[in-house]
Simulated scan of single mutants.
Amino acid sequence: MKLNNIDMKNLGLTEEFMQESKIYKDLFIGRVSSQSKNLYKVITEKGEIVAEISGKYQYSVKGISEYPAVGDFVMIDRTNNSQGNGIIHHTLSRKSVFAREAAGTKEDIQIVATNIDTIFICMSLNDDYNLRRLERYLSIAWDSGAVPVIVLTKSDLCKEIEVRLNEISSIAIGVEVLVTTSISDDGYQSVKRYLSSGQTVAFIGSSGVGKSTLINRLLGQSVLDTSEIRNDDKGRHTTTRRELIMLPDSGVVIDTPGMRELGIISADLTKSFSDIDEFAFDCKFNDCTHQHEPNCAVQKAIKDGFLSVERLESYWKLKKETKYQGLNSKMIEKEKTNEMLSSMGGMKNFRNFRKSIKKQNRNKRK
């Protein structure tokens, strides 16, 4: 899509970003629209250009999360490529970040998109439907600083929509749910309410759920490649990289590749599991683990049918992942040992216990 004479406010440029940009003299402000290896596409007021980061910038970063990401506002040395690639010298402060654990590592994070106002968590109403995965998405989305909205796609393939909506409402407290379909002209109108000048909406979800199809509908043309879900109902990766696209007078949308795994770096469980926190307020003990303690209000809620066992187990799982994040294997094992031996007073008592066993063994050998 060719871009000329860009309205930077429609692109999401706020007064806060403009004030911060004044620190950097003789540079221009732009927004990262895509990345391919070491090259970036950046939208400036004069159009979209190709850019790379400066050597000083590259030397100063401590991890991949500090490199420019799609959605970032950056300071760049030019607004066109007539004299070569632009050079990115700085990234401005991020107002929101959707991030996940980088694939194959426990030590760094992958920035999916930044400076987002609304996150559309897309889930199709066929075999992609998964409440536990949705809880994971919501936990990360709430933590990002943006507002999550659940977008259910392919409603034409589902015969029990009301049942699904009731299930989702029981776990998505305070989150709006939109039902869409791509087979009718009005099947995507509900998402338009979130699109307006200066707003940024990111589409997040698994492969093949219809993110790109929805965006094409909003654009009124087939800008993004799409592919149908196969007969086995497993989506293929259509979007291969994150991409920011500007809508005329309606802000911008960010398309993202499907994510098979969503490793948690940080999550806001107080919002995504606010129902459990509310029940826990009535527990007898402030530090109740909701497992074996007497007068546990969470366990009572399960017995009374107000809370499912699966949701509580999902809460425990995500809580544990968040707690262990950033720890190496030895530290994780130590943490697990402390938990297992909490009834004996933790690691200190465990060491004393081990010493007593060794002493007993020595006495037996004498």
Rank of each mutant, 00 (worst) to 15 (best):
R236T: 14
V177T: 14
S227G: 15
G187M: 00
S197M: 03
L157S: 10
T153G: 07
N216T: 09
L218V: 15
Y188D: 10
D156S: 08
S197W: 00
E162N: 15
S197F: 00
S196K: 15
K192L: 12
Q189W: 05
T200W: 01
N216P: 08
L152K: 01
S196C: 13
L165S: 10
G210T: 07
K211C: 07
R164S: 14
G174L: 02
N231A: 12
E162P: 09
G198F: 10
S169G: 00
G198N: 08
V177S: 05
K192S: 13
A202K: 04
S182G: 06
G205I: 01
S206M: 12
K159L: 14
G174R: 08
G235M: 08
E176C: 03
K192V: 09
D225H: 13
G235T: 04
L219A: 06
L214C: 00
D233E: 15
S169R: 11
L165M: 11
L165R: 07
S196P: 06
E162W: 09
T226W: 04
L218P: 03
L195V: 00
G174C: 02
I161C: 01
V151Y: 07
K234G: 04
S222R: 13
G174K: 04
I215R: 09
Q221S: 13
L165K: 12
D156M: 08
A202D: 06
L152I: 06
F203W: 10
L218D: 05
R236D: 12
L218H: 03
S184F: 02
S182L: 10
R236P: 01
R230F: 00
S190L: 11
V191H: 03
L165H: 04
T200Y: 04
N166K: 14
T200M: 07
R236G: 11
G220Q: 04
R193T: 10
I161N: 02
V163C: 12
G208T: 04
G174N: 06
S182T: 11
S222C: 05
V201G: 05
T180S: 09
E160A: 14
S197E: 11
D232F: 04
S222E: 15
T153V: 00
V177L: 06
G205F: 05
T181I: 02
N166M: 12
T213C: 06
S169C: 00
I229A: 13
T226P: 07
H237L: 10
V201S: 11
D233N: 15
E167G: 01
I204Y: 06
G174P: 08
E228D: 13
Q221R: 14
D156T: 09
L178A: 01
T181N: 13
V209G: 05
Q189T: 12
T200E: 08
E228Q: 13
S155H: 03
L218Q: 14
T181Q: 10
I168T: 13
E160N: 15
E176Q: 14
S169L: 01
I229C: 09
K159N: 15
S227W: 05
V179R: 05
G210A: 08
E162S: 15
K192C: 12
S182R: 06
I204D: 01
G187F: 04
R217P: 02
L195M: 09
L152H: 05
T200D: 07
R193M: 07
L214K: 01
D185Q: 09
K192G: 10
